[in-house]
Nucleic acid binder design. Structure first.
Lengths: 98, 98
DNA sequence: ACAACGGTTCGACTTCCTTGGAATAGTGGC
DNA sequence: GCCACTATTCCAAGGAAGTCGAACCGTTGT
């Protein structure tokens, strides 16, 4: 499971990752609540099957939006806020702030 | 040909419209150069067939990003900058500024 | 009126995304 | 070691989006 260098990530890829309501909601939650386990994230999105949710996480991860790292038996999802702000200034704020 | 009220436009729809390289390039051109006829827009995107380009314009228009109005024999494409800034503050700047 | 021109729409094809069940992998507790 | 638990990957099916030629529409100039 690899996380791309944000310098290599193109803006359209990020915008696409954020253009799904489920994924955007997750990003917003991470932005306001801080890092969470996959399980906790999933609780905020009731009715979404595990595998589907995992696919969305993958899309966000491959777009460089989130980090997903093992933590014991769980996995912790983190918003790559500082890196995103450096690469695409203002984008995250604009997308989260509403 | 109708243009949606931006109040009714959801953010994911806008992000999706901007997540295509051709469409994003067009938005950036409109942001820096001001309104342009479809013909002029098309010249900046060589190799894209008329119908394909028109389809991209439609996506942007239905997302509330651009206005597309008849002007004599041509059509003028305008970025809905003020409305977008009011509805999604900072988004356009973040997306155009780079 | 009619021909030329600028654009859009239609229709068919292809490609990509999403979805979700089943199988798989990694970790901790007993 | 084995079972329970968390989470990802595999795979197939359905649906949405991109592409582009051909047909169509509105406008201008003659």
């Amino acid at each position: 499971m690899d996380h791309p260098d944000l310098a290599a990530v193109e803006l359209p890829v990020v915008l696409f990752a954020l253009s799904d309501p489920t994924r955007l909601a997750l990003v917003r939650e991470l932005a306001t609540e801080g890092p969470r386990t996959v399980e906790e994230c999933r609780e905020s999105e009731p009715g979404v099957p595990k595998s589907t949710f995992s696919h969305h996480l993958r899309t966000l991860r491959e777009a460089g939006v989130v980090r997903n790292e093992p933590a014991g038996r769980h996995r912790v999802v983190t918003l790559r806020r500082d890196e995103l702000d450096a690469r695409f200034p203002g984008l995250l704020d604009a997308v989260v702030h509403d």
